[in-house]
Design a protein around this nucleic acid. Sequence first.
DNA 1: TTCCTTTCGTTGTAATTGCAACATAATTAT
DNA 2: ATAATTATGTTGCAATTACAACGAAAGGAA
Lengths: 230, 230
Amino acid sequence: MLQLQRKEDNMQEITQILNKTKLFNNINDQVILSILKCLNAQTKSYNKNDIIFQAGSTINEIGIVVQGSINVIREDFNGNSNIIAHLEIGDIFGESFAINKNNILPVSVVASSKCKILFIEFDKIISPCISNCQFHSILMRNLVNIFAQRNILLTSKMEHITKKSIKEKLLSYLNEQSLLHKSDTFSIPFNRQELADYLAVDRSALSSTMSKLKENGIIDYYKNSFKLKR
Amino acid sequence: MLQLQRKEDNMQEITQILNKTKLFNNINDQVILSILKCLNAQTKSYNKNDIIFQAGSTINEIGIVVQGSINVIREDFNGNSNIIAHLEIGDIFGESFAINKNNILPVSVVASSKCKILFIEFDKIISPCISNCQFHSILMRNLVNIFAQRNILLTSKMEHITKKSIKEKLLSYLNEQSLLHKSDTFSIPFNRQELADYLAVDRSALSSTMSKLKENGIIDYYKNSFKLKR
DNA sequence: TTCCTTTCGTTGTAATTGCAACATAATTAT
DNA sequence: ATAATTATGTTGCAATTACAACGAAAGGAA
Protein backbone atom coordinates (compact mmCIF):
# COMPACT_ATOMS: atom_id res chain seq x y z
CA MET A 1 0.00 0.00 0.00
CA LEU A 2 1.08 3.50 -0.79
CA GLN A 3 1.90 5.61 2.19
CA LEU A 4 2.91 9.22 1.81
CA GLN A 5 4.12 11.51 4.48
CA ARG A 6 4.50 15.18 3.75
CA LYS A 7 6.28 17.21 6.33
CA GLU A 8 8.74 20.02 6.73
CA ASP A 9 12.15 18.47 6.63
CA ASN A 10 15.44 19.64 7.82
CA MET A 11 16.46 21.22 4.57
CA GLN A 12 19.98 21.76 5.81
CA GLU A 13 20.64 18.02 5.82
CA ILE A 14 19.28 17.81 2.33
CA THR A 15 21.49 20.66 1.22
CA GLN A 16 24.52 18.55 2.10
CA ILE A 17 23.33 15.98 -0.39
CA LEU A 18 22.28 18.40 -3.08
CA ASN A 19 25.56 20.26 -3.31
CA LYS A 20 27.13 17.11 -4.70
CA THR A 21 24.57 16.76 -7.49
CA LYS A 22 24.95 18.03 -11.02
CA LEU A 23 21.79 20.06 -10.70
CA PHE A 24 23.13 22.18 -7.85
CA ASN A 25 26.67 22.25 -9.12
CA ASN A 26 28.44 25.58 -8.55
CA ILE A 27 25.91 26.67 -6.00
CA ASN A 28 26.89 27.04 -2.36
CA ASP A 29 24.88 25.72 0.52
CA GLN A 30 23.19 28.90 1.64
CA VAL A 31 22.11 29.65 -1.89
CA ILE A 32 20.76 26.13 -2.32
CA LEU A 33 18.62 26.71 0.74
CA SER A 34 17.18 29.90 -0.65
CA ILE A 35 16.58 28.30 -4.04
CA LEU A 36 14.71 25.43 -2.42
CA LYS A 37 12.50 27.93 -0.67
CA CYS A 38 12.03 29.96 -3.81
CA LEU A 39 11.06 26.81 -5.73
CA ASN A 40 8.87 25.57 -2.89
CA ALA A 41 10.63 22.21 -3.00
CA GLN A 42 8.88 19.48 -1.01
CA THR A 43 9.98 16.13 0.31
CA LYS A 44 7.93 12.98 0.59
CA SER A 45 8.84 9.73 2.30
CA TYR A 46 8.08 6.32 0.92
CA ASN A 47 8.24 2.78 2.15
CA LYS A 48 9.73 -0.03 0.16
CA ASN A 49 7.68 -0.90 -2.94
CA ASP A 50 5.64 2.29 -2.77
CA ILE A 51 4.98 3.68 -6.22
CA ILE A 52 6.52 7.10 -6.70
CA PHE A 53 5.62 7.63 -10.35
CA GLN A 54 3.18 5.42 -12.22
CA ALA A 55 3.73 4.39 -15.81
CA GLY A 56 1.08 5.84 -18.10
CA SER A 57 0.71 9.02 -16.08
CA THR A 58 2.16 12.45 -16.61
CA ILE A 59 4.21 14.38 -14.10
CA ASN A 60 5.22 17.96 -13.50
CA GLU A 61 7.87 17.51 -10.85
CA ILE A 62 11.36 16.17 -11.04
CA GLY A 63 12.55 13.97 -8.18
CA ILE A 64 15.87 13.81 -6.39
CA VAL A 65 16.70 10.88 -4.11
CA VAL A 66 17.81 12.24 -0.75
CA GLN A 67 17.47 9.03 1.27
CA GLY A 68 17.37 5.36 0.34
CA SER A 69 17.13 4.18 -3.24
CA ILE A 70 14.61 3.62 -6.02
CA ASN A 71 14.11 1.51 -9.09
CA VAL A 72 12.89 2.55 -12.50
CA ILE A 73 10.90 -0.35 -13.90
CA ARG A 74 9.07 -1.20 -17.08
CA GLU A 75 6.20 -3.63 -17.14
CA ASP A 76 5.47 -5.51 -20.32
CA PHE A 77 2.09 -6.55 -21.61
CA ASN A 78 2.17 -9.81 -19.68
CA GLY A 79 2.82 -8.00 -16.43
CA ASN A 80 6.47 -8.95 -16.21
CA SER A 81 8.39 -6.10 -14.67
CA ASN A 82 11.91 -5.25 -15.58
CA ILE A 83 14.30 -3.05 -13.64
CA ILE A 84 15.93 -0.70 -16.10
CA ALA A 85 17.68 1.58 -13.62
CA HIS A 86 18.57 1.74 -9.96
CA LEU A 87 18.99 5.22 -8.54
CA GLU A 88 20.63 6.21 -5.29
CA ILE A 89 21.16 9.29 -3.18
CA GLY A 90 21.75 12.37 -5.31
CA ASP A 91 20.29 10.90 -8.48
CA ILE A 92 17.65 12.85 -10.39
CA PHE A 93 14.71 11.34 -12.22
CA GLY A 94 11.71 12.43 -14.23
CA GLU A 95 13.39 15.45 -15.79
CA SER A 96 12.68 14.39 -19.38
CA PHE A 97 9.00 13.89 -18.67
CA ALA A 98 8.17 16.63 -16.22
CA ILE A 99 8.90 19.28 -18.79
CA ASN A 100 5.92 18.50 -20.98
CA LYS A 101 2.54 17.19 -20.00
CA ASN A 102 2.26 15.44 -23.36
CA ASN A 103 5.06 13.12 -22.32
CA ILE A 104 3.55 9.97 -20.93
CA LEU A 105 5.72 8.01 -18.53
CA PRO A 106 6.64 4.67 -20.14
CA VAL A 107 8.15 3.47 -16.86
CA SER A 108 7.23 3.38 -13.22
CA VAL A 109 9.41 4.59 -10.39
CA VAL A 110 9.25 2.47 -7.25
CA ALA A 111 10.94 2.74 -3.85
CA SER A 112 13.44 -0.10 -3.54
CA SER A 113 13.90 0.74 0.13
CA LYS A 114 12.52 3.20 2.64
CA CYS A 115 13.41 6.45 0.97
CA LYS A 116 12.88 10.17 0.83
CA ILE A 117 12.42 12.13 -2.36
CA LEU A 118 12.76 15.84 -2.92
CA PHE A 119 10.32 17.10 -5.53
CA ILE A 120 10.70 20.31 -7.49
CA GLU A 121 8.09 21.57 -9.90
CA PHE A 122 9.60 21.84 -13.32
CA ASP A 123 7.67 25.00 -14.11
CA LYS A 124 9.22 26.75 -11.16
CA ILE A 125 12.68 25.88 -12.38
CA ILE A 126 12.08 26.99 -15.91
CA SER A 127 10.22 30.22 -15.27
CA PRO A 128 12.18 33.16 -13.94
CA CYS A 129 11.25 33.58 -10.31
CA ILE A 130 9.47 36.69 -9.18
CA SER A 131 12.37 37.92 -7.12
CA ASN A 132 14.48 37.29 -10.23
CA CYS A 133 17.19 35.70 -8.14
CA GLN A 134 20.51 35.51 -9.87
CA PHE A 135 21.11 31.89 -9.02
CA HIS A 136 18.00 30.73 -10.70
CA SER A 137 19.77 30.94 -14.03
CA ILE A 138 22.66 28.84 -12.73
CA LEU A 139 20.17 26.15 -11.79
CA MET A 140 18.64 26.47 -15.24
CA ARG A 141 22.01 26.15 -16.91
CA ASN A 142 22.87 23.11 -14.81
CA LEU A 143 19.63 21.48 -15.84
CA VAL A 144 20.23 22.06 -19.52
CA ASN A 145 23.77 20.82 -19.00
CA ILE A 146 22.44 17.57 -17.59
CA PHE A 147 20.26 17.14 -20.65
CA ALA A 148 23.01 18.02 -23.09
CA GLN A 149 25.52 15.74 -21.45
CA ARG A 150 23.20 12.78 -21.51
CA ASN A 151 22.29 13.56 -25.09
CA ILE A 152 25.90 13.51 -26.16
CA LEU A 153 26.57 10.25 -24.37
CA LEU A 154 23.48 8.57 -25.77
CA THR A 155 24.07 9.77 -29.30
CA SER A 156 27.63 8.58 -29.49
CA LYS A 157 26.82 5.27 -27.83
CA MET A 158 24.01 4.83 -30.33
CA GLU A 159 26.39 5.42 -33.18
CA HIS A 160 28.64 2.61 -32.00
CA ILE A 161 25.95 0.14 -31.12
CA THR A 162 24.11 0.41 -34.41
CA LYS A 163 27.14 -0.91 -36.29
CA LYS A 164 26.61 -4.47 -37.38
CA SER A 165 29.72 -6.34 -36.28
CA ILE A 166 31.70 -6.34 -33.06
CA LYS A 167 34.73 -5.19 -35.00
CA GLU A 168 32.88 -2.17 -36.34
CA LYS A 169 31.37 -1.35 -32.97
CA LEU A 170 34.74 -1.49 -31.28
CA LEU A 171 36.56 0.55 -33.92
CA SER A 172 33.78 3.11 -33.93
CA TYR A 173 34.21 3.52 -30.20
CA LEU A 174 38.00 3.59 -30.32
CA ASN A 175 38.00 6.13 -33.13
CA GLU A 176 35.82 8.41 -31.09
CA GLN A 177 38.06 8.05 -28.08
CA SER A 178 41.03 8.79 -30.30
CA LEU A 179 39.35 11.95 -31.55
CA LEU A 180 38.43 13.10 -28.07
CA HIS A 181 41.94 12.51 -26.79
CA LYS A 182 43.37 14.04 -29.96
CA SER A 183 45.83 11.17 -30.07
CA ASP A 184 46.14 7.66 -31.46
CA THR A 185 47.15 6.50 -27.98
CA PHE A 186 44.71 6.75 -25.12
CA SER A 187 43.09 5.02 -22.17
CA ILE A 188 39.45 4.14 -21.88
CA PRO A 189 37.37 4.18 -18.68
CA PHE A 190 36.16 0.60 -19.10
CA ASN A 191 37.50 -2.83 -18.39
CA ARG A 192 36.63 -5.62 -20.82
CA GLN A 193 33.32 -6.53 -19.28
CA GLU A 194 32.24 -2.92 -19.04
CA LEU A 195 33.28 -2.26 -22.61
CA ALA A 196 31.34 -5.32 -23.73
CA ASP A 197 28.28 -4.12 -21.82
CA TYR A 198 28.63 -0.63 -23.27
CA LEU A 199 28.82 -2.01 -26.81
CA ALA A 200 26.11 -4.55 -26.04
CA VAL A 201 28.18 -7.56 -27.06
CA ASP A 202 29.53 -10.67 -25.39
CA ARG A 203 32.73 -10.19 -23.44
CA SER A 204 34.55 -13.24 -24.75
CA ALA A 205 33.53 -12.44 -28.30
CA LEU A 206 34.88 -8.95 -27.78
CA SER A 207 38.15 -10.31 -26.42
CA SER A 208 38.43 -12.59 -29.41
CA THR A 209 37.76 -9.74 -31.84
CA MET A 210 40.33 -7.58 -30.11
CA SER A 211 42.94 -10.30 -30.40
CA LYS A 212 42.39 -10.60 -34.13
CA LEU A 213 42.63 -6.84 -34.61
CA LYS A 214 45.89 -6.82 -32.68
CA GLU A 215 47.17 -9.76 -34.69
CA ASN A 216 46.38 -7.96 -37.94
CA GLY A 217 48.21 -4.87 -36.76
CA ILE A 218 45.12 -2.68 -36.74
CA ILE A 219 45.18 -1.84 -33.06
CA ASP A 220 47.42 -2.45 -30.11
CA TYR A 221 46.40 -2.52 -26.50
CA TYR A 222 47.36 -3.47 -23.01
CA LYS A 223 44.58 -3.54 -20.45
CA ASN A 224 42.63 -0.33 -20.95
CA SER A 225 45.34 1.46 -22.93
CA PHE A 226 44.88 1.47 -26.67
CA LYS A 227 46.74 2.52 -29.77
CA LEU A 228 45.22 2.87 -33.20
CA LYS A 229 47.72 1.98 -35.91
CA ARG A 230 47.97 3.18 -39.51
CA MET B 1 38.53 27.39 -49.14
CA LEU B 2 36.31 28.78 -46.47
CA GLN B 3 34.37 31.84 -47.45
CA LEU B 4 32.19 33.65 -44.98
CA GLN B 5 29.89 36.52 -45.65
CA ARG B 6 28.34 38.35 -42.76
CA LYS B 7 25.62 40.76 -43.59
CA GLU B 8 22.31 42.03 -42.36
CA ASP B 9 19.67 39.73 -43.75
CA ASN B 10 16.04 40.12 -44.28
CA MET B 11 15.00 38.70 -40.97
CA GLN B 12 11.38 38.63 -42.01
CA GLU B 13 12.06 35.91 -44.54
CA ILE B 14 13.90 33.97 -41.91
CA THR B 15 11.02 34.38 -39.52
CA GLN B 16 8.84 32.47 -41.96
CA ILE B 17 11.19 29.53 -41.63
CA LEU B 18 11.71 29.77 -37.89
CA ASN B 19 8.06 29.71 -36.96
CA LYS B 20 7.89 26.13 -38.19
CA THR B 21 10.77 24.98 -36.00
CA LYS B 22 10.50 23.41 -32.59
CA LEU B 23 12.67 26.09 -31.08
CA PHE B 24 10.28 28.89 -32.00
CA ASN B 25 7.16 26.87 -31.47
CA ASN B 26 4.27 28.82 -29.93
CA ILE B 27 5.87 32.13 -30.78
CA ASN B 28 4.31 34.39 -33.37
CA ASP B 29 6.23 36.12 -36.13
CA GLN B 30 6.52 39.58 -34.63
CA VAL B 31 7.75 38.16 -31.39
CA ILE B 32 10.28 36.00 -33.19
CA LEU B 33 11.62 39.13 -34.81
CA SER B 34 12.05 40.87 -31.50
CA ILE B 35 13.64 37.81 -29.95
CA LEU B 36 16.14 37.60 -32.78
CA LYS B 37 17.07 41.20 -32.16
CA CYS B 38 17.24 40.68 -28.42
CA LEU B 39 19.52 37.67 -28.94
CA ASN B 40 21.57 39.45 -31.56
CA ALA B 41 21.15 36.52 -33.94
CA GLN B 42 23.43 36.59 -36.96
CA THR B 43 23.41 34.80 -40.28
CA LYS B 44 26.36 33.60 -42.28
CA SER B 45 26.40 32.22 -45.80
CA TYR B 46 28.51 29.29 -46.88
CA ASN B 47 29.42 27.66 -50.16
CA LYS B 48 29.30 23.93 -50.71
CA ASN B 49 31.94 22.07 -48.68
CA ASP B 50 32.70 25.03 -46.45
CA ILE B 51 33.31 23.96 -42.88
CA ILE B 52 30.75 25.40 -40.50
CA PHE B 53 31.91 23.71 -37.30
CA GLN B 54 35.21 21.88 -37.04
CA ALA B 55 35.57 18.64 -35.09
CA GLY B 56 37.83 19.07 -32.10
CA SER B 57 36.78 22.64 -31.48
CA THR B 58 34.31 24.10 -29.03
CA ILE B 59 31.39 26.30 -29.92
CA ASN B 60 29.12 28.74 -28.13
CA GLU B 61 26.45 29.23 -30.78
CA ILE B 62 23.71 26.97 -31.98
CA GLY B 63 22.98 26.95 -35.69
CA ILE B 64 19.71 26.82 -37.59
CA VAL B 65 19.65 26.03 -41.31
CA VAL B 66 17.65 28.73 -43.08
CA GLN B 67 18.80 28.01 -46.63
CA GLY B 68 20.33 24.99 -48.33
CA SER B 69 21.46 21.95 -46.40
CA ILE B 70 24.38 20.68 -44.37
CA ASN B 71 26.02 17.41 -43.39
CA VAL B 72 27.25 16.32 -39.99
CA ILE B 73 30.32 14.18 -40.58
CA ARG B 74 32.76 12.19 -38.52
CA GLU B 75 36.27 11.55 -39.70
CA ASP B 76 38.06 8.49 -38.42
CA PHE B 77 41.72 8.17 -37.66
CA ASN B 78 42.52 7.19 -41.24
CA GLY B 79 40.83 10.30 -42.58
CA ASN B 80 37.77 8.51 -43.90
CA SER B 81 34.75 10.72 -43.43
CA ASN B 82 31.33 9.45 -42.68
CA ILE B 83 28.08 11.33 -43.01
CA ILE B 84 26.09 10.73 -39.84
CA ALA B 85 23.33 13.25 -40.44
CA HIS B 86 21.93 15.41 -43.20
CA LEU B 87 20.11 18.54 -42.02
CA GLU B 88 17.80 20.73 -44.03
CA ILE B 89 15.94 24.00 -43.65
CA GLY B 90 14.61 24.47 -40.13
CA ASP B 91 16.93 21.95 -38.52
CA ILE B 92 18.96 22.93 -35.47
CA PHE B 93 22.47 21.77 -34.70
CA GLY B 94 25.15 22.26 -32.09
CA GLU B 95 22.77 22.68 -29.19
CA SER B 96 24.29 19.88 -27.10
CA PHE B 97 27.77 21.30 -27.45
CA ALA B 98 27.22 25.03 -27.37
CA ILE B 99 25.99 24.86 -23.84
CA ASN B 100 29.32 23.98 -22.30
CA LYS B 101 32.76 24.93 -23.44
CA ASN B 102 34.11 21.67 -22.05
CA ASN B 103 32.19 19.80 -24.71
CA ILE B 104 34.50 19.13 -27.61
CA LEU B 105 32.83 18.61 -30.97
CA PRO B 106 33.36 14.99 -32.07
CA VAL B 107 31.94 15.78 -35.50
CA SER B 108 32.32 18.42 -38.16
CA VAL B 109 29.47 20.32 -39.78
CA VAL B 110 29.92 20.98 -43.48
CA ALA B 111 27.79 22.77 -46.07
CA SER B 112 26.42 20.19 -48.50
CA SER B 113 25.18 22.98 -50.73
CA LYS B 114 25.22 26.75 -50.81
CA CYS B 115 23.51 27.53 -47.55
CA LYS B 116 22.72 30.12 -44.96
CA ILE B 117 22.93 29.50 -41.22
CA LEU B 118 21.38 31.53 -38.43
CA PHE B 119 23.57 31.55 -35.34
CA ILE B 120 22.37 32.28 -31.84
CA GLU B 121 24.70 32.48 -28.87
CA PHE B 122 23.68 29.91 -26.32
CA ASP B 123 24.50 32.20 -23.41
CA LYS B 124 22.03 34.74 -24.68
CA ILE B 125 19.29 32.13 -24.79
CA ILE B 126 19.96 30.79 -21.36
CA SER B 127 20.49 34.02 -19.47
CA PRO B 128 17.45 36.16 -18.79
CA CYS B 129 17.65 39.14 -21.12
CA ILE B 130 18.05 42.62 -19.68
CA SER B 131 14.64 43.74 -20.79
CA ASN B 132 13.35 40.54 -19.15
CA CYS B 133 11.09 39.88 -22.13
CA GLN B 134 8.34 37.44 -21.39
CA PHE B 135 8.92 35.33 -24.48
CA HIS B 136 12.46 34.55 -23.57
CA SER B 137 11.20 31.89 -21.18
CA ILE B 138 9.08 30.34 -23.92
CA LEU B 139 12.18 30.01 -26.05
CA MET B 140 13.99 28.52 -23.09
CA ARG B 141 11.21 26.04 -22.52
CA ASN B 142 11.18 25.06 -26.18
CA LEU B 143 14.89 24.44 -26.05
CA VAL B 144 14.65 22.21 -23.02
CA ASN B 145 11.73 20.47 -24.71
CA ILE B 146 13.90 19.68 -27.69
CA PHE B 147 16.49 18.17 -25.39
CA ALA B 148 13.97 16.19 -23.40
CA GLN B 149 12.23 14.84 -26.45
CA ARG B 150 15.43 13.64 -28.02
CA ASN B 151 16.48 12.15 -24.71
CA ILE B 152 13.30 10.14 -24.47
CA LEU B 153 13.59 8.88 -28.02
CA LEU B 154 17.23 7.94 -27.63
CA THR B 155 16.73 6.23 -24.31
CA SER B 156 13.89 4.03 -25.46
CA LYS B 157 15.60 3.18 -28.72
CA MET B 158 18.69 2.26 -26.76
CA GLU B 159 16.66 -0.06 -24.60
CA HIS B 160 15.43 -1.97 -27.64
CA ILE B 161 18.68 -2.08 -29.53
CA THR B 162 20.74 -3.40 -26.65
CA LYS B 163 18.68 -6.59 -26.55
CA LYS B 164 20.56 -9.52 -27.97
CA SER B 165 18.21 -11.14 -30.47
CA ILE B 166 15.94 -9.74 -33.15
CA LYS B 167 13.01 -11.31 -31.36
CA GLU B 168 13.83 -9.51 -28.13
CA LYS B 169 14.46 -6.22 -29.89
CA LEU B 170 11.16 -6.42 -31.70
CA LEU B 171 9.13 -7.43 -28.67
CA SER B 172 10.77 -4.73 -26.59
CA TYR B 173 9.72 -2.16 -29.16
CA LEU B 174 6.21 -3.54 -29.56
CA ASN B 175 5.70 -3.67 -25.83
CA GLU B 176 6.62 -0.05 -25.54
CA GLN B 177 4.26 0.88 -28.33
CA SER B 178 1.55 -1.12 -26.63
CA LEU B 179 2.15 0.77 -23.38
CA LEU B 180 2.11 4.14 -25.10
CA HIS B 181 -1.12 3.33 -26.94
CA LYS B 182 -2.53 1.76 -23.78
CA SER B 183 -3.78 -1.10 -25.92
CA ASP B 184 -2.63 -4.46 -27.22
CA THR B 185 -3.61 -3.33 -30.71
CA PHE B 186 -1.84 -0.44 -32.33
CA SER B 187 -0.15 0.91 -35.44
CA ILE B 188 3.50 1.81 -35.71
CA PRO B 189 4.96 4.67 -37.76
CA PHE B 190 7.41 2.43 -39.62
CA ASN B 191 7.28 0.12 -42.58
CA ARG B 192 9.45 -3.02 -42.46
CA GLN B 193 12.60 -1.44 -43.75
CA GLU B 194 12.28 1.52 -41.41
CA LEU B 195 11.58 -0.74 -38.47
CA ALA B 196 14.63 -2.82 -39.36
CA ASP B 197 16.75 0.32 -39.56
CA TYR B 198 15.39 1.57 -36.26
CA LEU B 199 16.20 -1.72 -34.55
CA ALA B 200 19.52 -1.94 -36.41
CA VAL B 201 18.82 -5.36 -37.91
CA ASP B 202 18.46 -6.81 -41.38
CA ARG B 203 15.04 -6.37 -42.96
CA SER B 204 14.64 -9.91 -44.22
CA ALA B 205 15.81 -11.33 -40.93
CA LEU B 206 13.23 -9.15 -39.22
CA SER B 207 10.51 -10.36 -41.57
CA SER B 208 11.48 -13.92 -40.87
CA THR B 209 11.42 -13.36 -37.11
CA MET B 210 8.02 -11.73 -37.34
CA SER B 211 6.64 -14.67 -39.27
CA LYS B 212 7.76 -17.10 -36.60
CA LEU B 213 6.26 -14.99 -33.82
CA LYS B 214 2.98 -14.88 -35.71
CA GLU B 215 3.12 -18.63 -36.33
CA ASN B 216 3.66 -19.23 -32.61
CA GLY B 217 0.68 -17.05 -31.74
CA ILE B 218 2.75 -14.48 -29.87
CA ILE B 219 1.90 -11.55 -32.08
CA ASP B 220 -0.37 -10.82 -34.99
CA TYR B 221 0.12 -8.15 -37.59
CA TYR B 222 -0.92 -6.84 -40.96
CA LYS B 223 1.32 -4.24 -42.52
CA ASN B 224 2.04 -1.73 -39.77
CA SER B 225 -0.84 -2.77 -37.51
CA PHE B 226 0.11 -5.03 -34.64
CA LYS B 227 -1.56 -7.02 -31.92
CA LEU B 228 0.20 -8.48 -28.90
CA LYS B 229 -1.43 -11.73 -27.83
CA ARG B 230 -1.56 -13.42 -24.40
C1' DT C 1 -6.91 -3.54 -67.21
C1' DT C 2 -1.82 -3.79 -67.72
C1' DC C 3 2.56 -2.33 -66.54
C1' DC C 4 5.66 -0.69 -63.26
C1' DT C 5 7.39 0.08 -58.74
C1' DT C 6 7.62 -0.74 -54.05
C1' DT C 7 7.03 -3.52 -50.16
C1' DC C 8 7.16 -7.76 -47.93
C1' DG C 9 8.04 -12.74 -47.15
C1' DT C 10 10.97 -16.95 -47.98
C1' DT C 11 14.94 -19.60 -48.43
C1' DG C 12 19.82 -21.15 -48.36
C1' DT C 13 24.38 -20.15 -47.18
C1' DA C 14 28.28 -18.05 -45.18
C1' DA C 15 29.68 -15.48 -41.49
C1' DT C 16 29.22 -13.80 -36.92
C1' DT C 17 27.97 -14.10 -32.41
C1' DG C 18 26.59 -15.83 -27.84
C1' DC C 19 27.59 -19.06 -24.67
C1' DA C 20 29.91 -22.20 -21.77
C1' DA C 21 33.94 -23.97 -20.24
C1' DC C 22 38.45 -23.60 -19.35
C1' DA C 23 43.33 -21.53 -19.23
C1' DT C 24 46.18 -17.85 -18.13
C1' DA C 25 47.39 -13.44 -16.27
C1' DA C 26 46.89 -9.84 -13.02
C1' DT C 27 45.40 -8.05 -8.68
C1' DT C 28 44.32 -8.16 -3.99
C1' DA C 29 44.14 -10.02 0.48
C1' DT C 30 46.18 -12.74 4.10
C1' DA D 1 55.14 -15.19 -0.46
C1' DT D 2 51.04 -17.62 -0.86
C1' DA D 3 46.47 -18.02 -1.57
C1' DA D 4 42.27 -16.27 -3.21
C1' DT D 5 39.93 -13.47 -6.29
C1' DT D 6 39.23 -11.04 -10.35
C1' DA D 7 40.18 -9.90 -15.11
C1' DT D 8 41.31 -11.39 -19.57
C1' DG D 9 42.17 -14.63 -23.41
C1' DT D 10 41.00 -18.98 -26.01
C1' DT D 11 38.36 -22.45 -28.08
C1' DG D 12 34.48 -25.25 -29.90
C1' DC D 13 29.84 -25.45 -30.77
C1' DA D 14 25.09 -24.17 -31.27
C1' DA D 15 22.28 -20.52 -32.50
C1' DT D 16 21.44 -16.38 -34.77
C1' DT D 17 22.07 -13.17 -38.22
C1' DA D 18 23.41 -10.79 -42.51
C1' DC D 19 23.26 -11.15 -47.14
C1' DA D 20 21.79 -12.14 -51.62
C1' DA D 21 18.52 -13.71 -54.55
C1' DC D 22 14.04 -14.53 -55.70
C1' DG D 23 8.97 -14.48 -55.83
C1' DA D 24 4.58 -12.87 -54.24
C1' DA D 25 1.66 -9.20 -52.91
C1' DA D 26 0.22 -4.51 -52.85
C1' DG D 27 -0.20 -0.03 -54.69
C1' DG D 28 0.06 3.50 -58.38
C1' DA D 29 0.25 5.19 -62.95
C1' DA D 30 -0.81 4.98 -67.69
